[in-house]
Design a protein around this nucleic acid. Structure first.
Lengths: 233, 233
DNA sequence: AATTTTGTATGCTATATAACATAGTTACGC
DNA sequence: GCGTAACTATGTTATATAGCATACAAAATT
């Protein structure tokens, strides 16, 4: 039955919010939560659209990005399963300033923001949850500003690889291969450089035995060195 | 009497929060709100310190900035009278990731964050206020990432001047002169360039009759052009 | 008032990285 | 399975901007 599937997802994948709710709120959530399936590289919402839903990533990988000057794209955040997005613009009372798209086939859930706002106004634990999330994201954004503007190309790419590692971790079988297979272009858009330079710098890291590359699979051989380059590069 | 001065400030300068409170909360606020006077270019708090207070700017001007690679500094936000800062790190449960300092002699108020948190947990209007603030700041930060990484030097400086205009406005008497007198170095740190290049680009804008400069006074002659450069530069 | 320090201005040089070009390689649709 | 498109790789050139040097002006300190 559909309802029980939703309940399973809410209690297991989105436990963080679920735990904060009263029984009435849980019921409301079940009744209004909708599951969506997205293909790889599909746009979820785009800049300038009006925010209407809270999005929850249940399974898969999602990027948030901004289209900038002259066709350049900047990836500003990566979303993991169990995380929420798409709510900031609604809370700020403005249209989206960034777009969201899947990096792989993904399962997502939506909840109308009007309902979320309603629930927040009555549930302080939920309000604190969003205050906490927004605060962490804002800190990351501020840090990103300095990383992207002041570090050199090697430092920025190393940083991007560390971000991928922190977000998605290693494959279980070898504990070395990044659990995300990104196009070089996405890697470039994450670290504010051209695709050519992402490829080139990646090759340099391979020559220096810091990583091994097999297509889109990236195996990190020397994580401390990568962190060092990220920090001082 | 001191208490009545504080009450005057709270009701007039910090009306936005005041209006959201119950009588008991207002009393609590008056009893725990402390006024501080800072000189020009004085550090309020520094990166890596533990956040303890909510800061309210009552009068003056404050910059939030991050020290980056090789002595470079990035100004990430400007604070106006009536605005609050210093709370993000506390909510995120981490030390400060940026520093705060005055740009001119300023009057500030503090409130212990533990009290703010306590009040938020009981007052949903207050919680929504912070959710709204954090959401707006996060949108600005994300936009800043793209502005600073993708725009050319002229666009970045034009953008910085627009930010100063939007934050502090024009002098009342001529409606053209920016109501903030910043060092060229601060201007550079705001727009991610060296001081030399800020001076040079500012001179170019003068040659092009977009602005007039008299020491630190900047008069904007052609605001539409400046906005155009900011947008496409 | 004299002296030091700090800020502003401008020219020249070096360099990191974008832009462009070309080619090989892999994935994908028919 | 073949042809086309998308992706990866690498070399070369162009250029925006940092870095450095020098000079002058203004402000602060003695």
């Amino acid at each position: 039955m559909i309802k029980s599937t939703i309940e399973k997802i809410l209690t297991e994948e989105l436990a963080e919010i679920w735990a904060l709710l009263t029984n009435d709120e849980k019921r409301l959530l079940i009744d209004n939560f909708t599951i969506h399936h997205y293909k790889k590289n599909q746009i979820i919402y785009a800049e300038k659209e009006e925010p209407e839903y809270l999005w929850a990533l249940i399974d898969g990988k999602v990027k948030k990005y901004k289209d900038g000057v002259g066709g350049r794209v900047q990836i500003i955040r990566l979303i993991n399963p169990g995380q929420y997005f798409g709510y900031r613009a609604y809370f700020a009372g403005e249209p989206y300033v960034s777009s969201a798209a899947t990096l792989e086939p993904s399962t997502l859930g939506t909840l109308p923001m009007a309902l979320v706002e309603e629930m927040i106004s009555k549930n302080n634990g939920l309000a604190m949850f969003f205050i906490h999330e927004l605060s962490r994201n804002l800190g990351n954004s501020d840090t990103k500003i300095v990383n992207l503007t002041q570090k050199h190309i090697r430092g920025r790419l190393a940083e991007a690889l560390i971000v991928l590692l922190d977000n998605y971790g290693y494959e279980e079988d070898d504990n070395m291969t990044l659990k995300i297979y990104m196009a070089r272009e996405d890697l470039a858009n994450l670290s504010n450089m051209t695709t050519s330079n992402a490829i080139r710098t990646l090759s340099n890291f391979v020559s220096e035995k810091i990583i091994v590359v097999d297509g889109r699979k990236i195996k990190i051989l020397n994580e401390p060195m990568l962190r060092k380059i990220s920090k001082f590069g």
